[in-house]
């Protein structure tokens, strides 16, 4: 009987770890949890900390996560890691930055969209591109 559990640690940007393990320890929001094979299905949030994975040859791998979600099914453990430290105030700062940039770049302009102008502009660009395409086809044939 294989007493191992499949562990996948992924973030939105990349896969961090994937492999078999004897046991996994994760910093759940209510306290550290240890997951052995055939654990009952569980979903919990993680707080920043270290996920420890005991791989079958006895070694232990430590992976730092800055929060995320832990999903456990009897034979699969998935850690959906956040990519960065997430705190409410940091998120607010990011929002402000995005807004500020928009205001800086988009000064003295109308909130009303000039559809006609936009369509004219785009039609022109696309016509140019098509003309180039046609020219190319003609000259190559």
């Amino acid at each position: 009987m294989a007493a191992t559990i499949q562990v996948d640690i992924v973030s939105a940007e990349k896969e961090i770890f994937s492999g078999e393990a004897n046991m996994v320890f994760a910093p759940a929001i209510m306290g550290e949890v240890g997951i052995a094979p055939r654990h009952a299905p569980l979903v919990t949030r993680l707080k920043p900390g270290v996920v420890r994975v005991q791989v079958p040859d006895g070694e232990e791998q430590s992976i730092y996560v800055s929060g995320g979600i832990l999903e456990v099914q009897p034979h699969v453990v998935t850690v959906l890691s956040d990519t960065a430290e997430r705190a409410a105030d940091l998120d607010e700062a990011a929002v402000l930055k995005a807004k500020e940039e928009a205001e800086k770049a988009l000064h003295n302009r109308e909130a009303k969209i000039e559809y006609a102008e936009a369509e004219a502009q785009l039609a022109e660009t696309i016509a140019q591109l098509k003309a180039i395409e046609r020219l190319r086809k003609r000259s190559s044939s």
Binding site: A102, A105, R109, E110, A111, E117
Partner: peptide, 17 residues
């Protein structure tokens, strides 16, 4: 897109470039 909507208008709440 920032350049484009700057020219034609529109209600832009935020941006990332």
């Amino acid at each position: 897109a920032v350049g484009f909507f700057n020219r034609i208008g529109g209600n832009v709440l935020g941006q990332a470039t």
